[in-house]
Nucleic acid binder design. Structure first.
Length: 307
RNA sequence: CGCGGGGUGGAGAAGUGGCAUCUCGCCUGGCUCAUAACCAGGAGAUCGUGGGUUCAAGUCCCACCCCCGCAA
């Protein structure tokens, strides 16, 4: 396939898709990503995963802060290709930019639209305990994740999947979906079908608070929460005024007061509203990740405390 | 100069100027039909690195290295 197109993306997931496309011989002429921002300790500047990948592949990159400005759409129009592919770009695409591409902008969305529109479809599918999810290819329109569907592919969501492993499954699926359907769409053999908007559900931007554990909930729900919000913000609570991250937990059949930490069969167990969670790995603020056994060896009052 | 916590036997922790401590692991012996059990004894640490203060520094001061949480 010898297409000329622009790729819009920002996140690590988006970089995985770009990588897959390039490996399949589908290399964009231009990559548009967002600006490198100060991040991490000491606020050092990091460019986006997509930007880094494009740089290593020698693809031309534009880093933009905002597409809404007056001059950006004009600049993009001057360099527009037949079509564009967009995956996890993170910025709203204004109508002026949409109109630049005769073939439209094809959006890769990691859910079975109209389910889980919005910025966090992978996390929300896990959090809800959905049995399956997938990837959708839609043509971008003026509303978020609202355009007609070119193609979809489903993927079973396993009870052990977290946001990372699921993304790792969905990215190759997205690449395959693009390779299989791009020709048909571009030459008019595939007519995108409108979504059933009445069935739409929405995901919200994730914040740190999404990871805070509420031990009155069921162990199953908290376990899903942990998988959904891995690696960020993770599942966390407070212990002795310090943040305690529960890195890895498993549902455990035991019942006590919610939040109570016990040692059952040599397992460190936190009781929940229904059932318990066996803690495998945890991390106290300022410390590194430890097994629950190592942690409770040094913090003797952890067992028996209530979170 | 974004804010903050930390580096102590193999693992995890206590220890704010005066003998280096606890739990686990390890070694030896004992006990038990048996268990991630119990009992007795033992080995193992130049307290992250380099300076400084002091009669005396894990502890106070200065610099550096490394790990981590927050915020973005």
């Amino acid at each position: 396939m010898d297409y000329k197109f622009t790729y819009y993306g920002t996140s690590d997931f988006s970089a995985q898709i770009l990588q897959g496309l390039v490996q399949s011989g589908l290399t964009p002429q231009l990559v548009i990503s967002t600006l490198a921002k100060p991040a991490g300790r000491n606020l050092t500047v990091h460019s986006t995963p997509v930007s880094q990948l494009a740089a290593s592949l020698g693809i031309e990159i534009w880093e933009v802060s905002n597409l809404k400005s007056v001059e950006q759409p004009a600049k993009i129009a001057a360099r527009a290709h037949q079509f564009a592919i967009l995956a996890a770009f993170g910025k709203i695409i204004p109508a002026a930019v949409l109109g630049c591409y005769p073939g439209g902008i094809i959006n890769v969305h990691p859910s079975l639209l109209p389910l889980y529109r919005g910025p966090s479809p992978i996390q929300y599918a896990i959090k809800d305990g959905a049995a399956e999810t997938g990837v959708s290819l839609i043509v971008l329109d003026n509303e978020i994740d609202h355009g007609p569907i070119i193609a979809q592919s489903a993927c079973a969501l396993m009870p052990v999947d977290d946001a990372v492993t699921l993304a790792n499954k969905l990215a190759p699926l997205a690449v395959k979906l693009l390779l299989d359907n791009l020709p048909g769409y571009l030459n008019g053999l595939i007519t995108p079908k409108p979504q059933n908007h009445l069935q739409a559900t929405f995901s919200k931007m994730i914040s740190r608070a999404d990871g805070q554990a509420d031990f009155n909930k069921t162990a199953l729900a908290i376990g899903r929460q942990r998988r959904a919000f891995t690696p960020w913000p993770g599942l966390w609570t407070y212990w002795r005024e310090k943040r305690l991250k529960l890195i890895d937990v498993a549902v455990f059949d035991y019942q006590d007061t919610p939040g109570k930490v016990s040692l059952i069969n040599n397992q460190v167990v936190i009781s929940c509203g229904q059932g318990s969670l066996a803690v495998k790995l945890l991390q106290l603020e300022g410390g590194k990740q430890l097994t629950a056994a190592d942690f409770s060896r040094g913090h003797k009052d952890f067992i028996g405390s209530t979170l």
